[in-house]
Structure formats: C-alpha cells, structure tokens
Design a protein around this nucleic acid. Structure first.
Length: 729
DNA sequence: ATCAGCAGGTAT
DNA sequence: TACCTGCTGATT
C-alpha cells in the first residue's frame, strides 16, 4: 500500500513527530493537504497535514499495523519545495512540526474557515417601457454603473425599497450572482507619481539589480529608500518575479500604503496583524491564485504562497519586530535569507541605523553594503543639541522641559510650524509610592510596579491589570501618596498648561486603540490641525511631515539604562530615528536631546550623525563580553505557579546541564537565576542563559536533554526556548 | 486529549 | 477476590 507521512494537529510535545498512514486505493494525495486520520486507541478523528509521500516515508514502522487516512481536503496549503525551508525553521528555532505548519497556512484554517460568498447584483437586460419610472430607473442605473458591487442590503441602505429591487429581479432585468467575496483590499488609491531617482539612488538600484544575493542598504533618514524599493520591484515585475516588502507594524502607515497602492494598484496586498482571519484567508488565496505579485506587510507576510518569489525587502531592518516572540520564534531576516538563497533571489536589508549584527556581516563581506548618504529631498540633516539635565536641575529647573527646549518650542509656535515631542513611556507617572512608609504599588499578579494613568487608575503594563488608586496607603494608611516619573500623559498635561492655545495630540498605545484613531491623528497632523505631537516609539518612524521643524527627545536615558546588552544600540537608533522626523521639508530642522548622560557614546555619536563611530565603539564591547554577533544566545525560561518547586527543579537541572555541557567547550551557561521580571500573571519565572557557538545539532541535543529532565514535572513547569531573543527580561 | 494498563489501596 | 483510584505512557 502507498503511505504518507502525517503531522497531527495536536498540541502535545509527545506527538511532535511524523506518523505513517496508509493511503486508500483511490485517493490522490499531495504534499500540503489537510487530512483526517484515526488516532490513538479510540481512533479519534484528528486533523493532520501531509509532509511526505511513498518513497520518502519512513517505512520502518510495521506496515501491518498502519492505519488508513479517512479523507483529504482538496486544498494544498504548502508544496514539496517548501519542505526544506520548513525543516530548517523547525531546527533553527527549536519549534515543533505543527508550529511550522501553522506559519504556512492562513490563520483560521484550523477553525474551518471558508470563503465568504456574496450575493452580488448585476443588470441583465434593459428596462422595458412599463418600468421606465421611479424608483426603478434609479435602482437600475445604480446597479448598471457598478456591476457586482452591491448586494440587496446595500441598495436598501441607499434608500431604495427592497420590494422595488425584488420587482426588477422578478421581471428579469437584474440577477443575483453568488460570488467569492474578497473581504479586503478593495480600496483604491490615486496614482502615485513616479519620482526621478537621484544619482545615488540609481547606483543603488543598479548594484542590487545586477545580481542575486543579500544587501544592506544603509541610507540616512530621508534619503529616499522607498523609491529605491519601488524601482527594484518594478524591474522584478517586468521579469515576472514576485516581491515581498516587510515593514515593522508601526511603519505600515496609511502614507506608506498609499504610496505603494498608488504605484502598483491591484497587484499588491497589504498584510498586517489587524486583518481579521477572514481577510487573511482571502489575501492568502489572492496570492496563491497569482492575482497579487507584491506583498507589503509585517513579518508573517513572508510566508504568503508566491509562485516565483525573488526578492524580500526588509525595511527598518534594525527593528526587533522581525524576531517572533511566539513559537516558532523565528527571525524573519534570517528566514528571508534562507528562502532567497534557495530561490536564487535577493534580500535587501534597509535602515538608517543598521543593526550591529547586520553591519558586522557587511564588514565581514557576508553581505554587500550599499549606502545612500544624501537626503533625496532638499532638506539637510537636522541640527542636534544635547542638553545635560543635571545642569538644569542645578540651576533650579525641575520641570520636564529644559530651558533650551522651552525657548525653541515657543519659537516654533510663533512661526506656526509643527513639533514632535518624544518620550518612550506611556501613562502619567511611572510608579506610585507612599512617602511615609515607602510602599510601592505593585501588580498583584506580576513582579512590576504599576503605572499611574490620569483617570486615577493604576495599570500593570505587563498584564494589563487595572485598579483605582486608593486615597490612603494600603500598608500604613498614610495619606501621603506620591507619583514619581514621567509618561506621555504628564507631558500632555504640562504642555496644555504652558501653551493653552496650542493644538496638542498624544499618540501612544492608549490613544490609538481604535482602528481609525491612528489614521485620523495622522491626517490631522498632516493638515496642520495640530501644533504639537506627543508620542512614544510609535512616532519614531515613517512619519514624513514637511512642517515639522523641532523634535524634542525628553529622556534619552530611558532606553540607555535597561539591563540589556543592546541598550546602547537601542538608544542610538531611537535618537537617530526620532531626530529624522525633523526638517524633512524645505525648512531646517532642529533636535533637542535631553539626557542625564550626555557623555555616553550612543548619545554623542547620535548627536554628530556618526553611525560608523558608534559601530566601532559598540562592536568592541560586544566582542569583549562575548555577545552577538560573536556568539549565539540560547535563552531558556522556566515558569511555574509553584515557586519552591520551580526554584529547586531549575537549580537541579542547571547542575546537570552544566555537567552535560562539558562536551561543548565553546558553550557557557549563566544561571540558573530568577528572571528580571520574576513573576508575570502569577507565574514565577527562572532562566538559564547559554552563550556560545551553537550548531543546529548541539542546539537540538541540549533541547532534548532539558526536555527529558523536565519529563517528571511537565505539567507543573513550562519551559520556553529562544535563540537570540530580543530581550531577556 | 484520551485511553489502556498497572500498582496499590479498600470493601466484601 | 472484586472493584476503585490515580498515575504513567503512548498514540502510525
């Protein structure tokens, strides 16, 4: 009998393997199909996916005991050519087979998502004399001008009566056609004008277009990287090649969408996390049907089923969002490279502030560096000023704004220009404590202090828990409760007091919860209905407004003091990116950086727009401390509600692992130790950090060792494994 | 998840 | 000896 290798859709570590099933006589089975199979002693009907056929199936298993597949879904979700990349992802990021399959299929498929059908109206014959009167004429014309665009209820919404519509259908003037309804991407945009490329941009295009490979496009803010992407895509399209542009979610602004859609029209799909499952499903099908040649989207767009994918552009490549925090914890930049190496295509990593890892690879000639050193539009790089906040304090200024920034804000308002104030922390104040006994308000289920918000509530920024701030201290009943630290809400309040007539907007997670909020704010700012925009990380990129002449970075130290080996890099990138929002039009831009550590090299180099200088300093530190790109980090986090069991078991595993690791002389183990945030949602957290030169094999054997050690407590303690995580909090 | 198999207990 | 309960381990 013919046989198939099947991955069962079942969340359990023990079932994470390929099962062998017999294929019924008449069944024509292909790789990537979803099947139903009998599983376990009770022969429960479970779903699975075909990953191997016939000769490739491991037939060591006793074929007499082999069960048969019940049925197969005709849809093919992935193909044989995808299997090698899937396996590489699985091994590189220590994921399960099922996790990787879930990457390839549109979300919702496992819940039985189907095409939505729509009952669209069409005209089929011209109106006869007796119906040439109101309201029939109006209805007929409406449908005739927009064939297939309306369903009955649309017309009712336009004020026509349902019975009149039905009359026209009954008399054979119109018909209802049941069609596949694409739930998204119907919006059209005006044609976006093609800009002529400058010398530098053209040279960049030529270099990258000439031959396949991986490129790092290092272009200062405002140097017109997007135009380079568009030209590269245009040339690829002419050769019949597909392309994907990856962007961090927050850069996927209406402005960016407008530009791409205006330029490439219907051949494009916008694929981001705010799509519903149904919308994703439809877009996935449009790609597979070949209706779409280009995808713009977040990380997950990388797995859209293009036929001839030859280019992946990763914009803002230094951003951490390309590393997934969910299993499989893949890095989209690395996966894109694997894919393009296999397909013979191009990867373009682009940034004004490349990640240290990428720049290191460029220096080591593992990828090709292409630079854009001039702003495409007239504007020059903004003038930078660093203000030492310690001196402000010494001179008696205890407000959030330095005197230099105050003066500049007044001038900008005077000149009727716009400004952006950046503070990477939402809420009103960072923490609240009792001045009498020192009690700090902490989240009851997490180990972090709660943030005060202006509606008199305390919010845990880790789990979202919320409670009202009591009038007295819960510990000593004292009334002297004080808020410390500053968030965007406090900045907004201070600004409104100082400049009551200025129009102010605040943009952070709290004010952009609603789908349209971001777009509305964006339009308001663009139309000059706002003088001062206050925001978090969210405003640090993508925004391109010509009247912004001042950017204030209120506390550059916030990211500098994080206990993370990337904190300098993060700070340099943030300052450079935010500063890049200033002076993008004809007017000159100015930037004020407020900090308590003006002498830090990340601040100094950002001030002088000196990426190279920053990199040279930073790479020395990385090497000295054996951090990436010189090593890989293998992070293990153990979580449990039982604090004592967790501590004891993890200590024990730590001892045994240290012993086990003796055979790998390049790998060192740090810990076990409690995580920085030692409790989240009532789960205690311990960690082990392994640094070194991991191969896929050593990674695998360490994973198996740890999982085996965990067997006896697999219900009480969970372990999460991550290769090169973004953060180890 | 779910079921069979088994150990170790209690009721008869 | 029959029956119950809780644990373990495997699922093609």
């Amino acid at each position: 009998m013919r046989a198939a290798g099947i991955i069962i859709n079942h969340e359990a570590l023990a079932t994470d393997r390929i099962y062998t099933y017999g294929i019924p006589e008449k069944m024509n089975l292909k790789i990537g199909q979803k099947v139903r199979v009998p599983f376990g002693l009770g022969n429960r009907k479970l779903e699975g996916f075909v990953v191997a056929l016939n000769d490739d199936v491991d037939l060591a298993y006793d074929t007499m005991k082999m069960k048969e597949i019940f049925s197969a879904d005709p849809e093919v979700y992935f193909e044989e050519k995808d299997l090698s990349i899937m396996d590489e992802i699985r091994k590189s990021y220590m994921a399960t087979y099922l996790d990787v399959i879930k990457l390839m299929i549109p979300r919702g498929i496992l819940q039985g998502m189907k095409h939505k059908m729509s009952e669209n109206l069409y005209t089929i014959s011209t109106l006869a004399q007796k119906h040439l009167k109101s309201p029939y004429i109006e209805i007929y014309n409406e449908v005739d001008q927009h064939p297939g665009k309306f369903i009955k209820s649309d017309l009712v919404r336009k004020g026509f009566s349902l019975s009149s519509v039905n009359t026209l259908i009954r008399h054979g003037y119109m018909a209802v056609l049941s069609e596949k309804d694409y739930r998204y991407n119907v919006e059209e945009y005006e044609n976006y004008e093609e800009r002529t490329l400058n010398e530098e941009q053209r040279a960049a295009v030529e270099t990258i277009d000439k031959k396949e490979g991986t490129y790092l496009l290092h272009g200062i803010t405002g140097s017109g990287k997007t135009e380079v992407f568009m030209e590269l895509i245009r040339r690829g399209l002419q050769r019949g090649e597909d392309a994907i542009v990856l962007l961090p979610e927050i850069s996927l602004t209406p402005q960016m969408i407008e530009r791409f859609k205006g330029r490439f029209g219907k051949e494009i799909t916008i694929f981001h996390s705010r799509l519903s499952d149904g919308e994703r499903y439809d877009e996935w099908h449009r790609v597979r049907a070949g209706k779409v040649k280009i995808a713009i989207g977040a990380r997950s767009a990388l797995f859209l089923p293009f036929k001839n994918l030859k280019m992946v552009i990763v914009d803002e490549e230094h951003e951490t969002t390309y590393k997934s925090e969910m299993s499989p914890k893949y890095n989209a930049k690395e996966v894109a490279r694997l894919m393009m190496e296999k397909n013979g295509g191009r990867v373009v990593l682009a940034s004004a502030t490349p990640s240290v890892e990428s720049y290191y690879q460029a220096k080591a000639k593992k990828l090709t560096l292409v630079s854009l050193t001039r702003r495409a539009t007239a504007g020059e790089l903004p003038k930078m000023e660093v203000v030492d906040m310690r001196e402000e304090l010494l001179s008696g200024n205890r407000t959030i704004f330095s005197r230099a920034l105050m003066k500049k804000m007044e001038e900008v308002l005077e000149r009727k220009e716009q400004m952006i104030l950046f503070l990477n922390r939402r809420g009103f104040s960072t923490f609240v404590s009792c001045r009498s006994c020192g009690y700090v308000f902490k989240c009851s289920s997490c180990d972090i202090s709660m943030t005060y918000h202006k509606d008199n509530s305390l919010i845990c920024h880790q789990c979202g828990a919320r409670k009202y701030l009591p009038k007295t201290c819960p510990s000593c009943q004292s009334k002297y409760i004080k808020q410390f630290g500053t968030g965007t809400e406090k900045v907004e309040e201070a600004i409104r007091k100082m400049f009551p007539e200025a129009k102010v907007m605040r943009m952070d997670r709290d004010t952009t919860k609603h789908k349209a909020a971001y777009e509305n704010m964006y339009q308001n700012f663009k139309n000059n209905d706002c003088d001062i925009l206050i925001g978090t990380q969210m405003i640090s990129k993508g925004l391109d407004f010509k009247d912004v002449t001042l950017v204030g970075i209120l506390a550059a130290d916030l990211s500098l003091n994080l206990p993370d080996f990337r904190s300098s890099e993060k700070t340099f990138q943030l300052i450079t990116q935010v500063a890049g929002r200033a002076g993008r039009g004809d007017k000159k831009g100015e930037v004020v950086i407020q900090t308590y550590s003006p002498e830090h090299f990340a601040v100094e180099c950002a001030k002088t727009h000196d990426y190279e200088g920053f990199y040279e300093r930073e790479i020395l530190m990385r090497e000295a401390l054996k951090n990436p790109p010189f090593t890989k980090i293998f992070h293990m986090v153990f979580t449990s509600e039982d604090e004592k069991l967790l501590r004891e078991k993890v200590m024990e595993i730590g001892d045994r692992l240290r012993n086990y690791l003796k055979k790998y002389d390049t790998i060192i183990l740090l810990g076990p130790s409690p995580c920085m945030i030692s409790k989240i949602k009532n789960s205690y957290r311990w960690q082990m950090i392994l640094k070194g030169d991991f191969s896929l094999d050593s990674q695998e054997s360490i994973r198996l060792f740890v999982q085996n050690e965990m067997k006896s407590v697999y219900k009480a303690i969970k372990v999460s494994l991550d290769i090169n995580p973004n953060s180890m909090m």
